[in-house]
Design a protein around this nucleic acid. Structure first.
Length: 808
RNA sequence: GCCCAGGUGGUGGAAUUGGUAUACACGCAAGACUUAAAAUCUUGUCUCAGCAAUGGGAUGCGGGUUCGAUUCCCGCCCUGGGCACCA
């Protein structure tokens, strides 16, 4: 890092340039510019962080120069497994390693030259912070949105803890890649499913379409119907969920999940209990990975029971099969083998009759015997009595009405979104503020007793008993019941780190404020500053952090704590920086450290190079070859500014002004769109012009302002040398004057039959007739016009002239 | 299988209410300066034919609409990301 950069960082700090007075700011001027906070790992900041943080900071500076009071905080998501695993390995307490890593990262971040207001930083593992995470938990608990339930959950034997659905990838733990097991455990959940419908509404959010699509997909709304069939010899009916009741005349069997309620209830009346029991036990043992490896081969056993299809009177045999999921719909499915590929596979396996009730686009009416004939997407009904000839979508509604009218079922809406499993059997997290009393049962910790502090003297080793290390700390576990005063035990599970990060944006603005000691967030400050105006981070959080944060915000809104119900007004994802085509990771050994480049070229050059790589949202493959180009550009840029400072003469004022105002226009609109790459190339083009025309101080100041968001130190230095008042970031963004954008002459491209045949330069105000005449007389064009008769003339003002010639 | 994004020189990329494809940068080549190197500067650089003027071809592939398509439409192929036995 150069001395100039150090000098300005010192000056920025001593003049408190980036300290935001949260209370003074007028609401219309506030701009909350937030970047997703990092995990303080021992690997320090890598290129990906820079790629993310630097342009985010440039955006903040740009908004500041547009008169906004920009609040740009930074903190650390410091709870989590890596620090605890590190402690198990080395004996270094997570609190110590986190503090060390965080301070290292703060150092690196300050080298970057960002606008972070360090007075308002936070760490999620500070008791001062997690006290309020626990408070948020209690609010949700009181509202019935946090509950404990025994359920089959994902268990990672290597991490010795349960995982949320969102943290399981292809049956393996997202973090350690170990195979995930199913375990029946009593766990804490947040009732995010209550918010499924609300979370599908993105009104007023300026978010990337694909992120919204990903969330919607994850929430997975489907509109269907529960149909109740009589079961022969049984008192109660079987309920199946289907989105395709239109095909119900083709239903020939029923399949129930091994873990379904139906099996539990009717097991005693099954024909071959031993067989069924064997199957259920085998399927329970199977992990998701094994199921996937089996290639989804359909297996199953008969129960010997039959359901009666009310529509057709058909006796439908009931099977147990693990291709049906217990927690989807009713856990029971009606088999329509002609029009569902899974049902077809099962029917073939079990030799069940296949009935065609839909004719697709191909018009094939023949009996269905091959997979390719299974018609799912579209078509017209046949063999279906009153539905005959109807389009399937129309038929779906018609039969739903019919079923409801007859009392055979009712319309229901299903969501794929499951409740969020938040308890973890690990040490380094926020303790769940619950106490178990023999007399009073489950008792929430009173708010005045928060925080439930993590004891620091805990043995970290994993005992393999499925319990948190906290469970073995007597000091922690033994409490008195807040209700009756009897001896009681604490909950030993801690919360998923995603709970901590689901509300941190609410706390930043209140940090350092007296109210932050008494509340999770200051109401007045929050009302003014939140929601976040711009949120920048990776797209990998679409179905986790971003969904959870929306859920928290909506819940806290409904509970009356805040008056907005969306956390992030505008969202942008940075692209991923790869190395040799692969994601940078420690295990692949392809992580590139930014430090050496910053040391050699300076922070400004390094951040500009990252921005010049391509569009911010696209990411790209890291290659250091081109960084020289940016260094050269900075030299040239300094050269023209130096010339202006030295009172250099301008040889061609018109060209300079035209170039300057064109550049102001382009750079402004490009930065608005996060197209820093083209903003920089526009500046490069300007420098090339200015080197020829010469520079004056007034123009130089404007260009310095244009580069300021992207090269803050360089700009501050040049701004000072040009006599600008400190700081350039308190100056207002230059405006272009349209009068300089009007050229005196225009170059028209001339096409003959759509092919470029030449250009002609005419006065800007030349009329159509003049331009056409000039175009015709261009020698090469004239030659091409000779080949036939002009049948059409095209004139696009300011751009193009076209002739259509037909051979005569 | 489903949803989303993308495919342009040797490389990163630019250009889309349809209007001069390849801006800017890297790299490469030649030249200038230098004892030399580095740095810097100048020129050239999609491809084919041609001394040139100019002409043919090219934005993943194949069609279509249009005077004109990287841009719009239809059908494919490939790459990346997400989801996945969700009934």
């Amino acid at each position: 890092m150069s001395d100039i950069e150090k000098k300005w960082q010192k000056k920025w700090a001593s003049s408190k340039l980036y300290k935001t007075d949260m209370k003074k700011t007028a609401p219309k001027d506030k701009y909350y510019n937030l970047v997703m906070f990092p995990y303080p790992s021992g690997d320090k900041l890598h290129i990906g962080h820079w790629y993310n943080f630097a342009p985010a900071d440039s955006h903040g500076r740009f908004m500041r120069m547009h008169g906004k009071t920009v609040f740009e905080p930074m903190g650390f998501d410091s709870f989590g497994l890596p620090a605890e695993n590190y402690a198990i390995k080395t004996g270094v307490h997570p609190e110590k390693s986190i503090a060390k890593n965080a301070s290292k990262m703060v150092e690196q971040l300050s080298v970057m030259g960002t606008m972070y207001d360090w007075d308002k930083t936070l760490k999620t593992s500070d008791p001062e912070y997690y006290k309020w995470t626990q408070w948020v938990f209690l609010q949700l608990y009181k509202a019935g949105l946090a509950y404990k339930k025994k359920q089959g959950v994902n268990w990672c034997p290597s991490c010795q803890t349960v995982l949320a659905n969102e943290q399981v990838l292809e049956g393996a733990c997202e973090r350690c890649k170990h195979e995930v097991e199913k375990k029946d455990l009593e766990q804490w959940f947040f009732k995010i499913s209550d918010y499924a419908e609300k979370l599908l509404n993105y009104d007023g959010l300026d978010w990337p379409e694909n992120t919204k699509a990903m969330q919607s997909n994850w929430i997975g709304k489907s509109e269907g119907i529960n149909i109740w069939y009589n079961v022969e010899g049984a008192e109660d009916k079987i309920s199946v969920y289907t989105t395709r009741p239109d095909t119900n005349f083709g239903a020939t069997f029923i399949v129930v999940a091994p873990e379904s309620e139906f099996v539990k209830k009717h097991f005693d009346s099954f024909e071959n209990k031993k067989n069924v029991e064997k199957y259920i036990n085998a399927s329970r043992k199977k992990s998701d990975i094994e199921r996937i490896a089996e290639g989804r081969k359909k297996t199953g056993v008969s129960t010997g029971l039959f359901a009666i299809n009310s529509l057709t009177g058909r006796k439908m045999p009931i099977f147990v099969s693990d291709f049906v999921l217990a927690n989807v719909g009713t856990g029971c499915v009606v088999g329509v083998p002609g029009h569902d590929i899974r049902d077809f596979e099962f029917a073939i396996e079990k030799k069940i009759e296949i009935v065609r009730v839909v004719v697709g686009k191909d018009g094939d009416k023949s009996p269905i015997t091959k997979k390719e004939q299974v018609q799912e997407e579209s078509g017209v009904m046949i063999n279906s009595e009153f539905l005959e000839g109807m389009d399937i979508h129309k038929a779906t509604e018609a039969i739903k009405d019919h079923i409801e009218k007859n009392g055979w079922g009712e319309r229901v809406i299903n969501y794929k979104l499951r409740d969020w499993l938040i308890s973890r059997q690990r040490y380094w997290g926020a303790p769940i503020p619950i106490i178990y009393c023999k007399k009073c049962g489950e008792v929430p910790v009173p708010e005045k007793d928060l925080p439930v502090e993590l004891p620091l003297d805990v043995k970290f080793e994993l005992r393999g008993d499925g319990q948190s290390p906290l469970a073995h700390s007597r000091k922690f576990m033994n409490v008195v019941c807040p209700k009756c005063g009897a001896a009681a035990k604490r909950e030993s599970d801690t919360m998923d780190t995603f709970v901590c990060s689901s509300w941190y944006f609410l706390r930043y603005p209140s940090m350092g404020n007296a109210a932050s000691k008494k509340a999770a967030f200051d109401k007045e400050v929050t009302k003014k500053w939140v929601p976040v105006d711009m949120y920048i981070g990776g797209p990998e959080h679409a179905c986790m952090h971003l969904l959870y944060a929306r859920f928290f915000t909506k819940a806290l809104h409904d509970l009356g704590h805040i008056d907005f119900d969306e956390p992030f007004k505008k969202l942008i994802h940075q692209g991923m920086v790869t190395k040799d085509g692969a994601k940078m990771s420690k295990s692949k050994g392809n992580v590139v450290s930014p430090d050496a480049f910053v040391e050699k070229y300076g922070s400004d050059v390094f951040r500009m190079y990252l921005m010049f790589m391509g569009p911010f949202t696209q990411g790209g493959s890291w290659d250091d070859k081109g960084i020289k180009g940016i260094a050269r550009f900075v030299d040239k840029f300094s050269g023209i500014v130096g010339q202006a400072v030295g009172g250099g003469k301008v040889s061609d004022k018109d060209s300079l002004m035209a170039a300057l105002h064109k550049t102001i226009k382009k750079v402004t609109s490009d930065i608005e769109k996060f197209h820093f790459n083209t903003a920089l190339s526009a500046l490069m083009e300007f420098v090339a012009v200015a080197q020829i025309t010469g520079m004056d101080k007034v123009s130089a100041k404007k260009v310095v302002q244009l580069i300021a968001p992207m090269a803050p130190h360089l700009a501050e230095e040049h701004w000072a040398s040009l006599g600008g008042k400190y700081s350039v970031f308190d100056s207002s963004w230059p405006k272009f004057d349209p009068k300089y954008l009007i050229a005196s002459s225009v170059t028209y491209a001339i096409q003959v039959n759509g092919k470029m045949r030449g250009t002609v330069e005419v006065a800007a105000d030349a009329g159509k007739a003049d331009v056409l005449a000039a175009a015709r007389s261009e020698s090469n064009v004239a030659k091409h016009l000779e080949s036939g008769k002009v049948v059409k003339e095209i004139f696009v003002p300011g751009k193009i002239v076209g002739f259509v010639v037909k051979a005569s």
